[in-house]
Design a protein around this nucleic acid. Sequence first.
DNA 1: CAACTTTTTTTGATTGATCAAAATTTCCAA
DNA 2: TTGGAAATTTTGATCAATCAAAAAAAGTTG
Lengths: 223, 223
Amino acid sequence: MPSLTVENYLKTILQICVQTGSEWASTGQIASGLSVSPGTVTSMLKTLSDSSLAKYKPYSGVRLTKQGRMLAVRMLRRHRLLELFLVKTLDLTWDQVHDEAERMEHAVSDELIDRIDQYLGHPEVDPHGDPIPSADGTLSGENAGIPLAETEGGETVRIVRVRNQAPEFLRYLSEHGVALGEVGTVQENSDAGGIVSVQMPEKLVTLGQAAAEMLYVERVTAD
Amino acid sequence: MPSLTVENYLKTILQICVQTGSEWASTGQIASGLSVSPGTVTSMLKTLSDSSLAKYKPYSGVRLTKQGRMLAVRMLRRHRLLELFLVKTLDLTWDQVHDEAERMEHAVSDELIDRIDQYLGHPEVDPHGDPIPSADGTLSGENAGIPLAETEGGETVRIVRVRNQAPEFLRYLSEHGVALGEVGTVQENSDAGGIVSVQMPEKLVTLGQAAAEMLYVERVTAD
DNA sequence: CAACTTTTTTTGATTGATCAAAATTTCCAA
DNA sequence: TTGGAAATTTTGATCAATCAAAAAAAGTTG
Ligand SMILES: [Mn+2]
Ligand SMILES: [Mn+2]
Ligand SMILES: [Mn+2]
Ligand SMILES: [Mn+2]
């Protein structure tokens, strides 16, 4: 029923809310998330409001309704299951699946998605560590892990998520031994130098602050 | 580059040409193939002509250009590879894949299609026996087999293709023991009664003339 | 070949998605 | 508190895809 465009708006709004920890998303955030002009967003927000998918408050932004949130979570589920499906069946790498899933998520049926979910054994996370919402619309695990940027030299950490889908970034990580589930030791986190370096099993990787904000880890307690 | 709509028009035009054995497709054929009004088709034919994907001759119809034909064959390839991929990976049945592929064919990248082709081992036909065009745009095998309606009682035949994607039709066939590659014996082909009946390994199936025109077979010579 | 039928095109309109640029509102800092 | 700066909305426009209904062309048939 909702158009591809509406599906993208809803998903973007939800992602902004999750990332900012707020219930509201602003016109500007949405415009930059979707690379469209602010005026275009304003008019779409009215449309979403009219179809009761969101509540629009001029100059404040929007908030998804229960119905809108449901659809948005559904898109997140589709996207993430499709990514994992492509990795598992065709051996695509984590830098190849995002753009593909971005388009496919609008083209597949609910039945196909359920089949994929079953085929994959109801997985919890996608190839980037992003949690996969369950079929009933529950979205949990969105705040697992902490940014690598917040760790200190000497800590042992496990890579649990990357919050940046840029293929170049993902390839950089792969090439430097960073993969989901791997464990490494933070060598140095220097505000002055603006870098964080981590010793991974195979290689030493050094990231700038901004990149280290996008790489999520869990502290590992030796036992 | 071409929109989803243009892709669908091109594919439909090619299919009409293949089916009628002509180089031209008429406005009316296209309109009914796509379930849009004739006036809409006329205006799209001008658009296709303007983008040199087809040559439009008022009151005569259109003919694909080399470029348009290439794109159309590409869509056929995508559609058929996707159908087979869904059957192979997720065990979907032949009545479940057409609609799914109809939408997915516009959403996947060329790279993904090549991956699928490789994964499937460069298959020749899809789950309906439709030939899969090769990557270089060659479309062969479109006229393999003859309609079951053209066989006579006593002949032994192998099912090679179904030229009707309607799920109900395909399920009717499955439920009566008709599947690709199966061999059966024609019991009776009666113009008077308007039916053709075939003894399949497990079951006896009886089809009306129209249905028997859509089921393609090869004569099997006992040896 | 004339009249009727069928097919196709034209016309005029709508809807969804978008933009650039102007107008407005809100925010912040002096 | 007040004057820019920043964000947002409004305005006016375009483009793709569609439809219904009127007009025109082509085809058919007695
Ligand atoms: Mn998308
Ligand atoms: Mn992901
Ligand atoms: Mn299609
Ligand atoms: Mn097929």
